[in-house]
Design a binder for these strands. Structure first.
Length: 266
DNA sequence: ACATTGACCTGAGAGC
DNA sequence: TGCTCTCAGGTCAATG
């Protein structure tokens, strides 16, 4: 789940459920905490309240009204859930906040690849990680986008997934973006002309915004999207040809060999 | 120097 | 049923 659209939905979910309530209790597992002990983490957050959220790429930042900020990263399997009764609790809860009203906000992460930590300042964290501009940053226009990925020596799919160039796009949505733009995943960035790069830029914005509009729920994506068909006997929603799979920088990439001809050699 | 690989975790599903 | 193997939307350190 947790690429830019998913994290944006988590962020809004936290805003809608968990702001301005005193945190009465904090429970955390050591596995997902980064650079801080369980004891110090719990002590820092107890008695505080969440006052607002921000997002950059796949990272969510939660304001406590003053430094530090709570940083949430969801790995491959993380999500948030707000609930009152324990039978509603998800499995694999790694961090649990309990508010004064008796409700809980759980950070669940089955595979423990997510990270939770405290940071002094979101902007500084983004800089220290070397993250590129957020893919949906309004300031990221076509020219800035092309500037960001120009000079990358690998394939267009690796470029899209490289958080140092543009932040927020992962394996799933890069496939969708390339499908919508009609580009072969392995096409080298160096071989892409202005026209194709413009098409790619439009697809980035279009796909990510569309996903957010439907709460990042794959079932609700437009019929013309390939994401719902990436497993099993998937067929291209445009022309019905079988969807193929290949490895690009170690990740499975699903694509339509007919529709995504730009940059495909043979 | 830069792009790609393997390791890190756990669980689900396929095949035997 | 139970075992083994592969795969899964994340990053980061090691490698060519």
């Amino acid at each position: 789940m947790p690429e830019l659209p998913d994290v944006e939905i988590f962020r809004r979910y936290l805003d809608a459920t968990s702001l301005h309530q005193s945190i009465e209790r904090v429970r955390a597992e050591v596995d997902v905490l980064k650079d801080i002990s369980v004891r110090r983490f719990e002590k820092t957050l107890k008695g505080k309240s969440f006052e607002g959220t921000r997002r950059h790429g796949k990272y969510a930042f939660v304001s406590l009204g003053e430094a530090p900020w709570l940083l949430l990263h969801f790995g491959m399997t993380g999500f948030l859930k707000y609930y009152k009764n324990n039978e509603k609790a998800p499995s694999h809860v790694r961090v649990l906040f309990t508010f004064q009203n008796g409700y809980h906000l759980a950070y669940s992460c089955q595979r423990k690849l997510g990270r939770v930590k405290l940071v002094d300042d979101p902007a500084r964290f983004v800089r220290s990680q070397g993250l590129g501009p957020d893919a949906l940053d309004p300031d990221l226009g076509a020219d800035a986008f092309k500037q960001a990925i120009k000079g990358f020596g690998g394939s267009v799919k690796s470029a899209l997934m490289n958080q140092q160039l543009i932040a927020g796009i992962g394996n799933i949505y890069s496939d969708e973006i390339l499908y919508q733009a009609g580009i072969f995943p392995k096409q080298p960035v160096a071989q892409m002309d202005e026209k194709i790069l413009d098409r790619l830029y439009e697809a980035v914005k279009e796909v990510l915004m569309t996903a957010i509009d439907v709460q990042a729920d794959p079932e609700q994506l437009p019929d013309t999207y390939i994401i719902p068909w990436r497993h099993g006997e998937g067929r291209c929603p445009r022309d019905g040809s079988p969807i193929e799979r290949l490895k690009v920088s170690g990740r499975s990439s699903y694509y339509c060999p007919q529709c995504q001809s730009s940059g495909r050699q043979n």
